[in-house]
Amino acid sequence: MSEPHAHDNAAAHGEDEHHIVSWRVYLAIVLILLAATGTTAAVSYVDLGIFNAVVALAIGVTKATLVVLFFMHVKYSTKLTKLTVASGIFTFLVLIGMTLADYITRAWGNW
């Protein structure tokens, strides 16, 4: 761990040597996003039981991931940026998960 900071101080990720994503990638992504929107809207008319919510969320997560990775350039970003995104998602999951730990187990033992 002698130089753990080297990657975030170095100039390699600054404006000068910025990685530019091709516009073709953007076009492909937007088409996928639009297709996914159509799919999720169509699927909501099919009765899948509890899986309606699962499918809707899965498609939502996929779309969001594509936006984060490509539109927001995280795929081409530093580890620090990736870690930042991950920590946000992690804390959100802690909020949801730990709160549900209370709600879900409240009825346990009361049957």
Partner: peptide, 10 residues
């Protein structure tokens, strides 16, 4: 969008 609009359209 899915959370508010697509809860159960069938």
């Amino acid at each position: 969008y899915p959370l508010l609009y697509l809860i159960s359209r069938h």
